[in-house]
C-alpha cells in the first residue's frame, strides 16, 4: 500500500477510529484508571495534559519538516501542510498550558511555575503563533512570504533546545522555592491508560492536521480558480 492510498482512507477510516479512540480514552481516564493516592482525582488531568504536549511537539515537528520540504520542492502543498500543522500545534500547546495550570493550582498551589518545560512550551507557542500570523497576513500564493515563513519555522524549531537550555540555567542558577514534583514512576495500570491516551490524542492530532491540509488546499484551489476567471 503506497502513501497515496493510505491518504485516501482519511475520510472513511480516520474519523470513526478517532471518535472511538477518544471516547474510550475519556472512559479510561475518568473511570477505569485508579485514583492516585496522594493527589486524588486531579491527577487524571495527566491523561489529557501529557498527550496534548506530545501532540503539540509532533505538530510543530511536522511544520518544520513540511517547511523544509517546501523550501526544497517549492510545491505549495507542503506550505499547506506546514500551516495546518502549526495551527493544530498551537491548539494543543494552549490545551497543554491550560490543563497544566488547572492541575498545578490544587497540587502546587500556583497556576504557573517558571519551570523550564512550561516556559519553553509558552515560548514555543509564541514562536509558532508569530509564524502563523505572518503567513496568514499575506496572500496565499505569495512565494516570497511562504519561503520566508518556512525559514522562520525551521529556525524557530531549531531554537527550542537553546531556549530550553537557557531557561533551565536561568532557573537553576537562581534560588527558588522547592516544589514537590510527581514521582514519575507510574503504576502499571496508570501507565497503560497514559499510553492509550497518548495514542488516542496523537490520532486526533493527525486527523486535525489532515482536515487542516484539506482546508488549505481548498483555499489554494479557490484562489487559482479566481485567478483564471479574472
Amino acid at each position: 500500500m503506497n502513501l497515496n492510498t493510505l491518504y485516501n482512507l482519511r475520510w472513511t477510516v480516520l474519523p470513526p477510529v478517532v471518535g472511538v479512540a477518544i471516547t474510550v480514552m475519556a472512559g479510561l481516564a475518568l473511570v477505569s484508571a485508579p485514583t492516585e493516592v496522594v493527589e486524588g482525582d486531579v491527577q487524571r488531568l495527566l491523561y489529557v495534559h501529557l498527550p496534548s504536549a506530545l501532540a503539540s511537539y509532533l505538530s510543530f515537528g511536522i511544520t518544520a519538516v513540511c517547511s523544509a520540504l517546501f523550501l526544497i520542492t517549492r510545491d505549495f502543498k507542503w506550505d499547506a501542510g506546514a500551516q495546518a500543522a502549526a495551527l493544530v500545534g498551537l491548539i494543543f500547546t494552549a490545551l497543554t498550558l491550560i490543563t497544566g495550570a488547572l492541575w498545578g493550582r490544587p497540587i502546587w498551589g500556583v497556576y504557573w511555575q517558571w519551570d523550564p518545560r512550561i516556559t519553553t512550551t509558552l515560548i514555543l507557542f509564541l514562536i509558532f503563533a508569530a509564524y502563523l500570523v505572518a503567513r496568514k497576513s499575506s496572500e496565499l500564493d505569495n512565494e516570497r512570504v511562504a519561503r520566508f515563513c518556512s525559514v522562520y519555522a525551521i529556525i524557530g524549531f531549531l531554537d527550542v533546545p537553546l531556549i530550553h537550555m537557557s531557561v533551565r540555567w536561568w532557573r537553576t542558577l537562581h534560588p527558588q522555592p522547592i516544589v514537590s514534583r510527581l514521582d514519575p514512576a507510574l503504576p502499571t495500570e496508570m501507565l497503560l491508560v497514559t499510553l492509550f491516551s497518548v495514542a488516542a490524542v496523537l490520532l486526533v492530532a493527525v486527523w486535525f492536521i489532515v482536515l487542516g491540509v484539506e482546508t488549505e488546499l481548498l483555499s489554494q484551489r479557490l484562489l487559482k480558480i479566481k485567478g483564471r476567471v479574472r
Binding site: I22, A26, L30, G40, D41, V42, R44, L45, V48, H49, S52, I91, A94, L95, I98, T99, L102, W103, R105, P106, V204
Partner: peptide, 17 residues
C-alpha cells in the same frame, strides 16, 4: 475543590477540540 479543577480541565480540552 480539586474535583472542579479536573472537571474544568476536561471541559476545556473537549471544548477546544
Amino acid at each position: 475543590s480539586a474535583i472542579n479543577f479536573l472537571f474544568a480541565g476536561f471541559a476545556v480540552f473537549w471544548a477546544g477540540l
